[in-house]
Design a protein around this nucleic acid. Structure first.
Lengths: 179, 179
DNA sequence: TGAATTTCTTAATCTACTTCAATGCATGTG
DNA sequence: CACATGCATTGAAGTAGATTAAGAAATTCA
């Protein structure tokens, strides 16, 4: 077991599918939860609040795993939507078997490492969200995910940052004309 | 291996210490990172931003583990402070041995479960942070941690919610006099 | 116990961001 | 091709929450 790719290629988990841009893979309310490994393309997860506004929780480009861990862990219906931002190839992994089929120490070690990494990301993002301005958050986003801005609309970047497209537009203008 | 308590009571990890309220157990910048299991009392982790303002990342009452997973995972100096809100009994666990000493499938399974749970909590909190008003966040906090408000100052609750004590005071007043 | 310090509240002002509305630009579709 | 739909930008007006300041209440501790 050398890497995740290999892990996901066991016949047990193999279930690769191709989806068109815009396809919704999971809806809030769904009770059968899957994790999704992105082989190609780009997915996103998001909530829709009481006012109908979308809030993007994460982007998942090639090599990433995306899933609704909150709902999976608490065994509740999904709170996150997951859909395709680009035409994508996705490996669907059954939420429950994903864990119950971890058999070897190596698989566990690998999984543990991934989980730590995700927690690290969330910790950083939450702290930024609490303590930094929208502009700082945007600049951090550009540094951290330098490839994503080319593939994602301003609307979605704004949604990920927790601000409106209008606010992001203004921030970009200020940055361009040197502060 | 029935529970975490048992896991933490192996001679390998036992290193219980008692600290007075206010004692700082970890400072931002520290390079030797520990996880802390709270046997008794109450700890908190927090950052201090460029303006000197504290932002509480989490509270850890009895039975909880608290640590700076971001810094631990990325192998950087600590970004979080950890200190005692009450006189506390704490089991210090060396960050590295914590993982390298996971030997059995059962230990891994237990750890994996804990990590999932933490991610679930962070997912929920981040989504709330992005999509909900300060009042909604406060009400959710009261529901989710009904015991904590008695033990924690308004200041700290405000800091955890990502608002100022003044804003929280206003929210409380509004709630009291029926909306 | 009393003095010092911190916490909580209130109120006035300020500001970062939202909401709303209008416009020009792409992009894709019949 | 034209036309509809969604995206980005701009500006005006509104608001949640920050900042500042000051007094009252609670807590700490000599």
């Amino acid at each position: 077991m050398k890497n995740i790719q290999e892990f996901l290629n066991t016949d047990l988990n193999k279930d690769v599918k191709t989806y068109k841009k815009g396809t919704i893979l999971q809806q809030a309310g769904d009770t059968v939860l899957k994790s999704m490994y992105v082989k190609k393309g780009l997915l996103r997860s998001y909530t829709i609040d009481s006012k109908g506004k979308e809030h993007i929780f994460m982007f998942a480009p090639e090599g990433w795993i995306i899933s609704d861990i909150e709902s999976f862990t608490l065994e509740t219906a999904a709170v996150l939507y997951i859909d395709c931002i680009e035409d994508s190839e996705v490996v669907l992994i059954d939420g429950k078997s994903q864990i119950s089929n971890l058999l070897t120490i190596e698989q566990y070690a690998k999984t543990t490492k991934l989980l730590f990494k995700r927690i690290a990301t969330l910790q950083k993002r939450l702290i930024l969200m609490m303590s930094a301005s929208a502009r700082t958050r945007y600049e951090y986003f550009l540094e951290t995910y330098p490839d994503l801005p080319n593939r994602i609309s301003q609307r979605m970047i704004a949604s990920f940052l927790g601000i409106t497209p209008e606010a992001l537009s203004k921030i970009r203008r200020e940055i361009v004309k040197g502060k």
